[in-house]
Every structure is written in structure tokens, then in C-alpha cells.
Amino acid sequence: MSRLTRRQAVGAVTGAAAGLALAGVATASADDTTPAKNPAKNKGEAAKPKGAGELAPFDEVFQGRRIQGMPADDAAAHAHGHGGHTNGYRVLIDGRELQVMKHGKSGWSSPINHYVRFETPLDAARTAVTSLKGAVVVPFDPTA
């Protein structure tokens, strides 16, 4: 399974992915985790931080992509003046913003996975990585 993961990561670079994915792929070669076909891991259930709360910051490499999450106040320093709706939390995939939205008790969503709800922004980020297969997020801000 880990070989397959690596092949997918390499394929992402030779395929449609931009250079942004490249930095993550080097990490993926040394990373034997996160087989793409493991639904539990895709949903982030396997490695959920315990007791940290859904708004805990995170910074990890998942399937070769760097995913970061932080409460929006902290994120402002990284945001380069982006004025979009933050909903109190900011998620980045290889430095690009993945908009996440909280919907009351039903959980979080992102534009990449819009028909589901996630318990945490980390779950939303990991599933988006699984969806993208090396492609990069293109932020869409209707108020911009």
C-alpha cells in the first residue's frame, strides 16, 4: 500500500499538480503512512489528536501534503491580507487556503468536500488532500 501511495504522489507531480506539491512529495517518500484506500485514515479517525478539541492548531504532512490549521486570529499573521470569511479557523494545504466552514452541531465542510460534514477542520483538511490527489486548492471567495 505504501508503494501505491508513493506512486500516486509521484504521479501527482507528473500530472496536473503544480510545483507546490513537489515539496510535499519528498516528505511522502519517507512516509509510509496514509494509504489512500484506508477510509478510517481518510476520515482522520486513526490519528485524531486526543483531548485537543476541534479548534486545536495542527501542522502535519498527510499523504505528502503539508496541512496546517489554526484559529483565525493566529492565522491573520499568515494570511497576507486575505479578507475572506474565516469562520474562526483557517486551514492551509501546501500554503494555500482551504476554506472551512462550521455549520452548527453538524460540523465542518470545505468546498472540496461540500456534501459531507467533518468533526474537525483537521478531518476536512485530510479528506481534501485525499480528494485532490496532488492538485492544488483554488480559493473561491464570492465577496472578493
Binding site: 460540523g107 468546498p111 472540496i112 468536500n113 461540500h114 456534501y115 473561491f140
Partner: peptide, 20 residues
């Protein structure tokens, strides 16, 4: 979630899972 209409979007995956 992951049921009925929403589940069909997720089953197809790709763009069908997204806002586009």
C-alpha cells in the same frame, strides 16, 4: 451525512463531491 442525495455525490467523488 453520507446518505441519500449527499451520498450519491460522495459515491461519484471528483468534482461531484465539491461545490462545482
Amino acid at each position: 451525512y453520507l446518505s441519500m442525495h449527499n451520498r450519491v455525490h460522495s459515491w461519484v467523488w471528483g468534482q461531484m463531491e465539491s461545490s462545482v
